[in-house]
């Protein structure tokens, strides 16, 4: 007789496998996400880092099932949430997960909030549509949430419209909507990018505090290395729709094994003045319509050799490092040990 297996503590909440997303554009079909795989475990924060066009936002839209239609579509892979592949489940079933199990905070709170509805209505809608609250119950719940995300005088402001709030307060309202029904997974797509620098830290602190209180997992999409360092457990580096390096946050920061990661680290200004010059990555982001053959990064890579032009490297273990550290570079060991700033 077999004993039932105890619930696996480390079982991933979300498993993305070999995800491929295409976008139809006027100029042709673009593969915005090309074979991306990763796991998110309960309660952890996974940062997805990359520049514009790297596919990080598209990945999150695909997980949420809100790709812009009809341009964007998932053409391959699996998105498994708690054992169910969201890509094969009936759409009505997946819809019910949105907002309740998985929520999303967007980059620009001004355009993400509906300008013609009062904020209390927009927050309360979560309770009314998903939980069957009455209007007055939903309103009370909205006020409570607004207080929880730190909006002063919530009771007086519940009937205001989004344009009557500051950028930081709007993002707090967006966060209130996302967290209304205690989701298990929060996707934050550049949640601080559109905000004033002084407000960015406050909003980030609020997000991480609420995450800790709720014990929810978070996918933090950003291009801000500083935000990642302070709040993420693991990191996924994306470039041209592919994962180029992944691992625990400290590990990747200190033992960067992909030339792109290394280049990004070198391009951060340091306040203590150890290097007095910024070192940018040369060249510009690739054109997704016309990707270079082999490794997409090779035209910008100081380590590039003949093999890089012919052969696209797989995401493989960096042998001299712990098992979770993987990089998609033919010369990952060399990049790792190379101390020179060859960018």
């Amino acid at each position: 007789m077999s004993t039932p297996t105890p619930p696996d503590e480390d079982a991933p909440l979300l498993s993305v496998r070999d995800l491929r997303v295409e976008f139809g554009t006027r100029a042709g079909v673009v593969t915005a996400v090309d074979g991306v795989s990763f796991d998110v475990r309960p309660g952890e924060t996974l940062a997805i880092l990359g520049e514009s066009g790297s596919g990080k936002s598209v990945t999150s839209q695909a997980i949420m099932g809100i790709l812009p239609k009809p341009a964007g579509r998932v053409v391959g892979g699996r998105i498994v949430y708690r054992g169910a592949d969201l890509l094969t489940r009936p759409p009505a079933e997946v819809r019910k997960l949105r907002g309740t199990e998985m929520s999303m905070v967007f980059q620009d709170p001004l355009s993400s909030l509906n300008p013609v509805f009062r904020v209390g209505y927009q927050i309360g809608e979560m309770f009314r549509r998903h939980r069957g609250y009455s209007r007055s119950e939903a309103r009370e719940a909205a006020i409570e949430l607004m207080e929880r995300v730190g909006i002063p005088a919530a009771r007086q402001r519940v009937d205001d419209f989004p344009h009557q709030f500051s950028g930081g307060m709007r993002q707090r309202i967006m966060i209130a909507i996302a967290l209304a029904l205690d989701p298990t997974l929060l996707i934050a797509d550049e949640p601080t990018t559109a905000l004033d620098v002084t407000v960015q830290a406050q909003v980030m602190k609020l997000l991480t505090r609420l995450q800790r209180e709720e014990g929810m997992a978070m996918i933090l999409i950003t291009h801000d290395l500083g935000v990642v360092a302070s709040s993420a457990d693991r990191v996924l580096m994306m470039y041209a729709g592919r994962v180029v390096e992944t691992g625990d946050i400290r590990e990747v920061y200190e033992y960067a094994s992909h030339p792109y990661t290394k280049g990004l680290m070198a391009s951060i200004p340091e306040l203590d003045g150890r290097s007095d010059r910024l070192t940018p990555i040369k060249g510009s982001p690739p054109d997704l319509l016309d990707l270079p053959p082999g490794c997409s990064f090779h035209p910008r890579c100081p380590y590039a050799r003949d093999v890089c032009v012919q052969d696209d490297p797989d995401l493989l273990h960096v042998e001299s490092r712990p098992g979770t550290h993987r990089a998609a570079c033919h010369f990952r060991e060399e990049v790792l040990t190379d101390d020179r700033e060859r960018v």
Binding site: M64, G65, I66, P68, R95, K96, L97, R98, G99, T100, S103, M104, F106, D108, S111, S112, L113, N114, P115, E125, M126, R129, H130, M174, I177
Partner: peptide, 11 residues
């Protein structure tokens, strides 16, 4: 964006 938000809210 707000239409995308409405979808993300599971409406």
């Amino acid at each position: 964006g707000y239409v995308q938000t409405a979808r993300a809210k599971g409406l």
